[in-house]
Computed example of a mutant assay.
Amino acid sequence: MPPPTPAPRSTGPALELLVHGVGGTTPQDMLVDPSTVRVTGDATAAIYRRSIDVDAEQHPERYREKPVAEAYCWSNLTSGNGSRALWLLLLPFMVINLAHWMRPIARRRPRAIRLYGLLVRLVALSLTVLLTAAACEVALDLTAWQCAGVPVCSGRRSWLGFLSAEQGGWWSQPGRRLALAAVVPAALVGLLWFLSNRTWSAYESQRPLTGAADADDEDEPGEAPAPDPVRPALGRPGFWYGRRLVARLRAAHT
């Protein structure tokens, strides 16, 4: 039986995180204080504190008997135009990303940690290849090669008329049909790059409030976490600040 995991250590004041429901509310109502200050985040989602609690980390002696209340306001995350539905394309990749952070604790086993990280990255890469191959199958094989090359199939679909081999147009040549259909998987990869770039610039590039300049390099997926101090995954800088790491992963996938 493995030894129990030691409790996380903290030298600062305790925090009490308040999160509103789907109805949304203001940070002033959540903190029951008309004077609040945004400590991190942006206009879409942010964390607020009371004005008197902004410098709580510099005066921990004031909060030995009570936690510092913080309000997380996320109501704007669910508002926007219909293009926000395109984020669903990144949902499978988000699940793969969570697989890394759900890795069981394996202290003093760096090889196992590196192997786990390698397998997760291979699964993520195979997911990218699978998505691109599916787009190629539909656009190049089923549509441009098979359907456009058979008069019975292309005749039933007027939008394929200019690709039909029976009409003998400029685009009816097999090579030209395939070249035109290749725009579909290329556009899909471009869309994934655009969405991931927006996510990277809006969230992963936001430097934490505290931490070193290279905090994103502290928790590389292939490296074992530092044994001292013991911190939960949510408290590690690399969980929130992945500017360099996510940029490399984006380049590998797109």
Rank of each mutant, 00 (worst) to 15 (best):
A56N: 08
A226N: 07
Y116S: 13
A45E: 10
P229V: 06
P104F: 05
W159Y: 11
A69M: 06
P4D: 12
S75C: 05
Q173H: 08
S35H: 07
P232D: 14
T132K: 02
L86E: 01
R243I: 06
L118P: 00
A186G: 15
S10C: 11
D55N: 09
V150Q: 13
D217V: 00
W145K: 13
E57H: 09
G21L: 10
A124Y: 02
D228V: 07
A14D: 11
P3V: 05
G190I: 04
T199S: 05
L31M: 04
R9L: 13
A247G: 12
T44F: 09
L142N: 12
V32M: 05
G41K: 08
A124T: 11
G80W: 01
E65A: 14
A247F: 14
G80M: 04
F194W: 15
A202N: 12
V184E: 11
P8Y: 04
L125H: 02
M30R: 02
G80F: 04
R49S: 15
C73A: 05
P8W: 01
L18H: 10
A148K: 02
R176K: 05
W159L: 07
R243L: 14
S10Y: 05
F93N: 02
R84P: 00
S154F: 08
C153V: 04
I113W: 02
L31G: 12
M30W: 02
W74S: 11
M94W: 12
P27Y: 02
P221T: 04
D141H: 13
